[in-house]
Design a protein around this nucleic acid. Structure first.
Lengths: 109, 109
DNA sequence: TATTGATATAACCATATGGTCATATTAGTA
DNA sequence: TACTAATATGACCATATGGTTATATCAATA
């Protein structure tokens, strides 16, 4: 990958919120309304972070009805040469979401 | 590594100038006056980029007389989980420096 | 000691970033 | 069709970023 594009991707990853989004997506696909309660920031803020990650080809989006699900673009992460082993475990966040009934996968059933 | 620190390191890498500095240091240690002519920017600008990389533990400095040589902190890069295979080859830059007699290693001899 | 070369720091400036709130858009549903 | 939920976009703001020039610091040397 060319240097400028590689730098852009790394800069997109170089924010605690976006990096945690990557860590979350590393466990399972998420939609915006699942991510919002995890972070203490507004829905538009999350939306813009996702947009930034999408522009850097780090995630892809997939609309399912009302919801837009985001997935990791593992191919791109591999091309950047970034391993995901170092990312923190996010089981606790998903557990909390489930307890609060905020997992969209529950609503879908 | 904790998320905030990992994000800081990635942000430090997320700039074309700093990333190229990393690529150059991946080939050999460099001092500031060698890096300046490679980039089209001022000496203080280079100095600040190096300071930024040092703060992120990505490089170490080592004074040798007048010169301060910077080296990659490969341990830190490994902890971040970033491979260096993707970085561009910089032989041309060093060759040009040598032709112009700007390599400090020449002056030292 | 005075001078020169290499590097770092300070003050400054234009632009980018990451958040806010308000609003537009899109899909499902009464 | 009207309403609601989910998402995206626009306008705005405070701070960070990446550059500049001028100057300070530090080491080598005449």
């Amino acid at each position: 990958m060319e240097l400028k594009k590689l730098a852009d991707a790394l800069k997109a990853l170089g924010d605690p919120t976006r990096l945690k989004i990557i860590a979350l997506l590393n466990m399972r696909d998420c939609c915006v309304c699942e991510l919002v309660p995890i972070f203490g920031i507004s829905q538009p803020a999350i939306s813009k972070h996702l947009s930034r990650l999408k522009n850097a080809d780090l995630v892809t989006e997939n609309r399912k009805g009302q919801w837009v699900f985001y997935s990791l673009n593992r191919k791109q992460l591999h091309e950047i040469g970034l391993g995901l082993v170092n990312l923190p475990d996010c089981s606790a966040e998903f557990k909390k979401l489930e307890e609060q009934g905020l997992l969209v996968s529950c609503k879908e059933d």
